[in-house]
Amino acid sequence: NKFNKEMRNAYWEILLLPNLNEQQKRAFIRSLYDDPSQSANLLAEAKKLNDAQA
């Protein structure tokens, strides 16, 4: 399933972002589970926040 693969990839990438705190990571991951079809958008948002907090 395409969404499962995308979601899994986004999950691990979000977990490994160094500048997000645990609460932020949990919020993004919760959103991933709520709507896996938004994986790419959520990952992009997480990366943007990660860069902003660098």
Rank of each mutant, 00 (worst) to 15 (best):
D34L: 13
A10I: 11
Q24W: 07
L32G: 01
Y33I: 09
N9K: 15
R30I: 09
W12I: 05
P18E: 07
L49Y: 12
S37A: 12
E6G: 01
A44S: 11
R26Y: 14
Y33K: 04
P18D: 05
R26V: 08
E45T: 09
A44M: 10
D51E: 15
A52S: 08
E22L: 04
Y11A: 07
L17I: 03
K2E: 15
L49N: 09
N19M: 13
A40R: 09
Y33G: 02
R8G: 02
F28G: 01
R26E: 03
K5F: 01
I29R: 02
L32N: 01
R30T: 14
K5A: 02
Q23I: 08
F3V: 15
I14N: 00
S39F: 13
D51Y: 09
D51P: 02
M7Q: 12
I14L: 06
L43D: 01
D35M: 08
K2T: 12
Q53V: 10
A52D: 14
A54H: 12
Y33D: 01
S39H: 14
L42R: 08
A54Q: 09
N4R: 02
P18R: 09
F28K: 04
I14Y: 01
N19D: 09
N1T: 03
L43W: 04
K25N: 01
P36K: 04
I14S: 00
R8I: 14
R26F: 05
E6Q: 04
E6V: 02
S37W: 10
A10N: 02
K25D: 00
D51R: 15
R26H: 13
N50D: 10
Q38A: 12
A52I: 08
Y11F: 08
K2F: 12
Q24H: 06
S37P: 05
N21W: 12
N50Y: 03
N4Q: 09
D51L: 07
K2G: 15
I29V: 12
P18V: 07
N19A: 12
A46F: 01
S39T: 07
A10W: 01
N21K: 10
N41A: 09
S37L: 14
N1Q: 04
K25Y: 03
E13G: 15
L42G: 03
S39I: 14
D35Q: 13
L20Q: 00
K48W: 14
L43Y: 03
R8P: 00
A52W: 10
A54L: 04
E13L: 11
K25S: 03
L16Q: 13
L49G: 04
F3R: 15
S37I: 05
E22N: 13
A52Y: 11
N41W: 07
I14P: 00
K48Q: 12
K25P: 00
K25F: 04
P36N: 06
I29W: 06
L15N: 07
N21D: 10
F3H: 15
L32R: 00
L16R: 14
F3E: 15
N1P: 15
N4A: 03
Y33L: 15
E13V: 11
L42D: 02
L20R: 00
Y33F: 14
I29L: 06
A52T: 12
N19T: 08
N9T: 07
F3W: 03
P36D: 02
S39A: 12
L15V: 10
A40S: 13
A40Q: 10
F28Y: 10
E22S: 11
K48S: 07
L32W: 03
E6R: 01
Q53K: 06
N50Q: 06
M7V: 13
L16I: 04
P18Q: 03
D35Y: 05
K47G: 03
K48G: 07
K47H: 06
Q24P: 01
P36L: 04
L17V: 02
A54M: 12
A27Q: 12
A40P: 11
N4Y: 14
W12F: 12
L43S: 14
D35T: 11
E45V: 04
A40V: 12
N19Y: 11
L42H: 14
N41G: 06
N9H: 14
A54I: 13
D35H: 06
N21G: 13
K48R: 12
S37D: 06
A27S: 11
Q53F: 08
K5M: 01
N21F: 13
D51K: 09
F28L: 12
E13S: 12
M7F: 15
P36S: 09
S39M: 14
N4D: 15
M7A: 15
S31Q: 12
S31V: 08
E45G: 07
N50L: 01
A44H: 14
Q24F: 08
K2N: 15
L49E: 06
W12T: 05
W12G: 05
N1M: 01
Q23S: 05
R26T: 05
I29N: 02
L17S: 11
N4K: 02
W12D: 04
K25L: 05
Q53G: 12
L43T: 12
E22R: 07
K5G: 02
Q53M: 09
Q24S: 07
F3A: 15
D35L: 06
R8A: 13
L43G: 05
D35R: 07
K5Q: 05
D51A: 06
N1A: 01
R30K: 13
A10M: 03
M7S: 04
F28N: 01
S31R: 09
Y11D: 00
A54T: 12
W12V: 04
D35I: 08
S31F: 10
K47I: 06
E22T: 12
Q53L: 14
K47N: 06
S37M: 13
I29P: 00
Q53I: 12
D35A: 07
N4L: 14
D34A: 11
I29K: 02
A44D: 05
K5R: 02
R30A: 07
L42Q: 05
Y11K: 06
N41R: 05
P36E: 02
A40W: 08
R8L: 14
R8V: 08
A52V: 08
P36H: 04
K48I: 09
S37G: 08
P18Y: 04
E22G: 06
L49T: 11
K25T: 09
Q38E: 13
M7G: 01
R26W: 08
K5Y: 01
D34V: 06
K47D: 03
L15W: 02
Q23Y: 14
N1K: 06
L43K: 12
K25H: 04
A54S: 07
N21E: 12
N9A: 15
L16E: 09
K5T: 01
N21R: 12
A46I: 02
N19R: 11
P18I: 05
L20S: 00
A10F: 02
A44Y: 13
E45I: 12
Q23V: 10
L42A: 06
A27L: 11
F28W: 07
K47P: 00
L42T: 12
N21H: 08
Q38F: 10
L42M: 08
L17G: 01
L17H: 15
P36A: 06
L20G: 00
Q24R: 05
E45Q: 12
A10R: 02
A40K: 10
K2W: 14
F28H: 11
N50H: 14
F3N: 15
S31Y: 14
N21V: 10
A40Y: 05
Y33T: 04
N50W: 01
E13K: 15
A40E: 07
S31I: 04
E22W: 07
A40N: 12
D35K: 13
A40H: 09
N50T: 02
Q24V: 13
I14K: 00
